[in-house]
Amino acid sequence: MTPLFEQARQVPLRLWVAIITAFAVLALPSTALAAEEFEPADEFRLDPWIPIEIFGIDMSINKAVFYIILAAVLTVLVMVLVARTMKVRPESKMQTTVELAYGLMKDNITDSNLNPKMAARWFPFIATLFLFIWFSNMLGYLPLPTNTTHTMNVLGLELPTFAIYAATANISMPLILALVVWISYNVEGIRAKGPIGYIRGLVPAGVEGFMVGPILAIELLSHFVRLISLSLRLYANILAGHLLILFMAGGLVVLLGMGMVGSTILGLATGVLGVAFFLFEIGLVATLQAFIFSTLTAIYLDGAVAEEH
């Protein structure tokens, strides 16, 4: 037996199956895509899958709605299933992982930023925010058969091609979440100090006289900017990650069309970068952005009810 043959024998059967399947799947859309013009924006296009219109508002189920609902369903399913089977003595790694996440949400995000009363009241909101955004972000890195703009022909069936897409990469989704946060902390502030007390509390202690007006204006503006910064931070991070992965993982090669040799070199170089970006996004950015969003929510809530500005 030659050493090479011996090595080949040691590769598990399932790995061979995976490699062959991967080649087959990659080969299929390539023939389907080759004829069409590649438009990066198409990757984010929202075709209505099930058209719905309620009170003149387009509520059609599309790719983004599918991702949003999938994230919510996963959030609920994972947490409720683990909670139901939870044991005082942990028996599964799943439970340990969920407990770790719970500890992060409860101790690090909620309890360390809010007083006990506020923490108890707002923990469900902050924790759901964290999980919902986290699942949305993570789902965004799973290739799912959701690209209905480009279809692939498998045994005569027109199937959507595999694509990565994130609901958090649409401004609407982070924006509405930020809006909910923004309304929540302002309402909480007004409830704690009264409308006048809350407005007065926006001006830092020590500011007196004619400076109160301009400072108040700046503070009010900064609160509106929070709305933008909170949503844009999440949105831009996830969108940038997806664009990077999209361009690195073939998009650039198709757009530039540098011929056989040039495309091969560029493809290899950007492919490696694509993998690196993918790992960076899935390993850090997805969790970090969910963490930042929920932590800032806790900080804003605390700032609204805190005595001293």
Binding site: L46, D58, V65, N170, I171, S172, M173, I176
Partner: peptide, 11 residues
């Protein structure tokens, strides 16, 4: 693109 457009349905 819906990416940068505020879509009420999505919200």
């Amino acid at each position: 693109s819906p990416l940068v457009k505020v879509v009420p349905g999505l919200m």
